[in-house]
Amino acid sequence: MKVTISDIAKAANVAKSTVSKVLNDSPKISRETKLRVRQIMKEMNYTPSSIATGLARQSSYNIGLLVDMSKGSEFLNQFFYNIIGGIESVIGSLKYELTIANVQHSSPEDHFLNRLVHSKRVDGIIANNSVLTEALAAELDRLQFPYIAIGEIPAPGSWVDFDNELGGRMLTQHLLTQRYSSIAFIGGQRDEKIFTRRYNGYAQALEQSGLTASQDRIINGKADEHEGYRAALTLLQNPDRPDAIVCMTNYAAFGALQAARELGINVPAELGIAAFDEYPLSRYTTPPLTSLNIDTFKLGVSSGHLLMERISGGSGLPSRHLLLEPELILRESTTRN
């Protein structure tokens, strides 16, 4: 049997009008009462009809972009602003505004579900998969509230991402065509889905060429300049050193180039280096890096389109998973004469 406002009011020992005011985030209701009533709603798996069915009748003409302001990497880089520009290019023409919301909160009352969703201040949400946890996605699904994740998330969520597995194959296949045969992979944590996808593509390309991804050629770690340098030194000082390296990011590749230079190893004659991500270093290194261009503006555009589909199509739409194709940019770091 469907849970009603009356059921919630009875369980919380308040009037139905109080429950309605909590749903509308009325300032007349105390913080303690709001927290208690919302906890009961969650325990009783109550879906407010104003959220589940009222979207077609009401619109704030606002889209929420969730960020974690405690992580500088979430917003202090070009990728973040490219994504914003892509989203704006879609929703702006439809008269929607974009609200950037911090998911960090000091109390349950400040949670974005209360600030944005229950209060109906936004019509939909876009968030990176590092912010949109499985639990939050499940709650948005329960509320039948439109959202799109940037990056892969478990079913039944909708998401858009670049095909990282394809990217791993593209980089590795290119190195193989340049007559490199002992190819290492550096950077990324094994428990990260993005590493798993990129590594799988790398391993698939080797297998398709009759080679094996040897575990002593794989070095995990933070994909930055320092760890890239450290990992490359470890590999290149081994008597049985690789003749090419696929790097998780161009920052890791920058560190690998530094290690090769210190050891007197010529790039690309003796060592090929290729990297995921074009921005910001690839074209400026010595030699310039072969890399994959991950067009984050296009990522924003695609997430904006998917969210608008979900807002206009209602809760009956099936989930969508969209993989975008990266672009291989060939430069001197892998080009053998």
Rank of each mutant, 00 (worst) to 15 (best):
176 L>Y: 02
171 L>H: 01
178 Q>E: 10
185 F>S: 02
174 H>N: 04
146 P>K: 12
79 F>N: 05
154 P>G: 04
91 I>P: 05
112 F>S: 01
109 E>W: 04
127 A>D: 06
68 D>P: 07
152 E>N: 10
140 L>M: 09
133 T>R: 09
108 P>M: 05
86 G>F: 09
135 A>P: 00
134 E>W: 08
97 E>C: 12
106 S>W: 10
123 D>R: 03
60 S>V: 10
151 G>H: 06
156 P>K: 08
141 D>T: 13
133 T>K: 11
107 S>G: 10
126 I>R: 01
182 S>C: 11
66 L>M: 03
64 G>L: 01
107 S>L: 07
133 T>M: 02
111 H>P: 04
177 T>C: 10
186 I>C: 03
169 R>Y: 14
148 I>S: 07
174 H>R: 12
127 A>V: 05
98 L>T: 00
99 T>W: 02
87 I>R: 04
127 A>E: 04
123 D>L: 00
144 Q>F: 12
125 I>P: 07
144 Q>G: 11
64 G>D: 04
76 L>D: 14
123 D>V: 00
127 A>M: 10
76 L>T: 12
103 V>A: 05
93 S>M: 14
143 L>Y: 11
129 N>Q: 07
127 A>R: 07
136 L>M: 15
68 D>K: 11
120 K>N: 14
98 L>Q: 03
125 I>D: 05
69 M>T: 13
83 I>C: 09
65 L>D: 00
168 G>P: 08
91 I>V: 14
98 L>W: 11
118 H>R: 07
143 L>P: 02
64 G>T: 05
181 S>G: 13
59 S>D: 09
183 I>M: 01
178 Q>F: 07
141 D>P: 02
121 R>E: 03
92 G>F: 11
177 T>Q: 15
103 V>F: 01
106 S>V: 13
100 I>H: 06
140 L>I: 08
131 V>M: 06
164 N>D: 15
142 R>P: 01
69 M>F: 15
138 A>M: 13
113 L>E: 06
174 H>L: 08
95 K>Q: 15
159 W>L: 12
172 T>I: 01
102 N>T: 00
171 L>S: 04
71 K>S: 14
151 G>S: 11
175 L>P: 03
154 P>V: 13
108 P>S: 02
85 G>T: 08
114 N>C: 11
127 A>F: 03
147 Y>M: 09
96 Y>Q: 05
147 Y>A: 10
83 I>R: 03
126 I>W: 03
124 G>P: 04
117 V>S: 03
120 K>H: 11
120 K>E: 11
88 E>L: 15
172 T>E: 01
96 Y>L: 01
79 F>W: 14
114 N>Q: 13
121 R>T: 04
76 L>W: 10
122 V>I: 15
150 I>V: 14
64 G>E: 03
59 S>A: 09
160 V>Y: 07
109 E>Y: 07
137 A>V: 03
116 L>Y: 12
164 N>V: 02
137 A>M: 08
